[in-house]
């Protein structure tokens, strides 16, 4: 019960801080932080989705940025054609795009799920180091594809004229946008929380611990892992759609492997296999970047030792440290 309480306190305090952030920062006349924290919430969403496959199913994907990028480009391309007033060339029906959030974010989720289905179907035939390498290769392939795709800006990407539109909400307002990001993060966290504790989730956790045993018990593990991979891809795609809106820019950099690496660092720093941990990881990493980068451009020199320390001494990352839950997998 004691642990349960400590955990609840950590989560409630965290939630209260996130909810109170816009009024506080506005009062402090540091409204810039709202925009920064929108970005953090979005990366937290991506990190939670990676934790689902990395922390619970044992799939170390180093290509998660691919889905972030695909989601962002879905929003970017749809908005691009609205601005240009042209039809989307690769889709039938002469559709001239959309800036409606439901349509463009929905498209981002669908398209990134499809990419996850194809990439996962091929990658999951391997495991271990080969899985890391093949997911990395797919992400880099997409990266170079979009770099050379001059129709949509190539290396320079697409600048968005405006954020997506939700009837009754002004997303151009940073505080509103922040709350939308926070709400989507919380919704996704809740979904993941239910999933990892469900029957399906138990199958995933079994696969992480002992896939051979799972097969011997009669589970065709490939199917379960693939579905899990697609759910994670969908989450990252949504994060991509939001990041496009946050920065009002879409570029291939999102797919670069260093971005995938950053998301993985957030998961490890925050606590693998904890669902909530990656949020703490995203806050820590991006704040650290923000603060340290003001002093030196070589801020990674400080991040490195911190990460080594966490990996060596805090298996459950920041979250495990805060909740006192050194915890076990599974």
């Amino acid at each position: 019960m004691d642990k349960f309480n400590r955990k609840s306190i950590v989560l409630l305090v965290g939630l209260a801080l996130l909810l109170a952030l816009p009024p506080i920062t506005i009062a402090m006349e540091e409204a810039y932080f709202i925009s920064l924290f929108s970005r953090i919430m979005i990366y937290a969403l991506a990190a939670v989705s990676l934790d689902l496959i990395l922390g619970y199913a044992g799939m170390a994907s180093l290509g998660h940025g691919a889905f972030l990028g695909v989601g962002a480009y879905a929003v970017g391309i749809l908005a691009f054609h609205v601005t240009e007033e042209t039809a989307i060339p690769f889709l039938p029906g002469g559709w001239a795009g959309s800036i409606n959030a439901v349509i463009s974010w929905g498209s981002a989720i669908v398209v990134s799920s499809l990419f996850a289905l194809v990439i996962g179907a091929l990658s999951l035939r391997t495991s271990g180091v080969y899985f890391i390498m093949i997911t990395l290769a797919f992400a880099q392939m997409l990266f170079f594809f979009f770099v050379s795709l001059t129709t949509y800006g190539g290396e320079d990407g697409i600048n968005l004229d405006q954020r997506s539109q939700i009837p009754g909400l002004d997303l151009a307002d940073d505080a509103s946008f922040y709350y939308v990001c926070l709400a989507l993060l919380l919704a996704f966290v809740y979904i993941c929380y239910r999933i990892v504790n469900s029957r399906f989730g138990m199958v995933m956790r079994g696969c992480k611990q002992n896939e051979t045993r799972m097969r011997a018990l009669g589970y065709s593990t490939y199917r379960y892992k693939l579905i899990c991979f697609v759910i994670a891809g969908a989450g990252a795609g949504l994060a991509g759609a939001l990041i496009a809106n946050q920065s009002e820019f879409v570029g291939p950099g999102l797919m670069h492997w260093t971005r995938s690496g950053e998301v993985m660092i957030m998961v490890i720093l925050g606590g693998m296999g904890t669902i909530f941990g990656p949020i703490f990881g995203a806050v820590a990493l991006l704040l650290m970047e923000e603060v340290l980068a003001a002093y030196t451009e070589h801020w990674m020199i400080i991040l490195g030792p911190v990460l080594i320390f966490v990996v060596l001494f805090a298996r459950r990352g920041i979250y495990g440290f805060l909740t006192g839950d050194g915890g076990r997998d599974g």
Binding site: I195, S198, R199, F200, Y219
Partner: peptide, 13 residues
């Protein structure tokens, strides 16, 4: 494994 129902994503197992 013998019961099936492995695609239940919501109820606590």
């Amino acid at each position: 494994s013998t019961q099936g129902h492995n695609f239940r994503f919501w109820e606590n197992a």
